[in-house]
Amino acid sequence: MTLSAAAAKSVPAVQVEGLHKRFGENEVLKGVSLSAAQGEVVALIGSSGSGKSTLLRCINLLETPDDGRVLIQGEEIAMKKDRAGRAQPADSRQVDRIRQRCGMVFQSFNLWTHMTVLENIIEAPVHVLGRNREEAVARAESLLAKVGLSAKRDAYPSQMSGGQQQRAAIARMLAMDPQVMLFDEPTSALDPELVGEVLKVMRDLANEGATMLLVTHEMAFAREVSHKVVFLHQGRIEEQGTPDELFGNPQSERCRQFLMREGGR
């Protein structure tokens, strides 16, 4: 390993410090700090309303944090205060650039309904990265093969099952070659029999060394693929550790209770 590669390795892929976010009166994040190393898979768990999705959405600035710092591969997202005193990104171009490196998969897939699967996948590579179309199509086809959807190349999202749509959405994210992948409850909207096909694709990504932050209710999957599990409770990190530590021997009472409830489902 060269010196610079070693240095890159030591910079966390994602680093969050003292993150605060409130919606009106409701403070959803009350000072959260977290980091994910290059190639690390971090699972965020907690009951609904614990702030785990908001935390994920603050990392790519889909939500604007009120306070705190977000760094992607060491690059801090510059923030400023607007006239009303609310925090705003200082440079929207920097945010766009960061987002190109931070792919996101949503609970409700959010494939563009007016485009075919292939068009969905090549849209950002062609119009954001300026890749040429043939190149983008070839890459999209290999990604579709990877997620097992080659036959659905020209289908519209409305013609596909939820599991197929989510796999296509993952392919759309991968087409941007993201350095960090954010998964926001990717299987929560799926029928139980379709969850497995999506988890399989995600497991492959984890095994290939992708850096992933994953909000999930799939405890078995979190335990299996993640290197670190973070338990959030009411906007704070209550406990974090390796899957074996956290699932095998949770230290906090709340985490213990949460795992019992989730395990009993």
């Binding site: 766009d96 987002r99 190109q100 996101m104 949503f106 950002a124 954001v128």
Partner: peptide, 9 residues
Amino acid sequence: EAARALGMH
């Protein structure tokens, strides 16, 4: 949101 998350301006 999907578009913003991909870095589209």
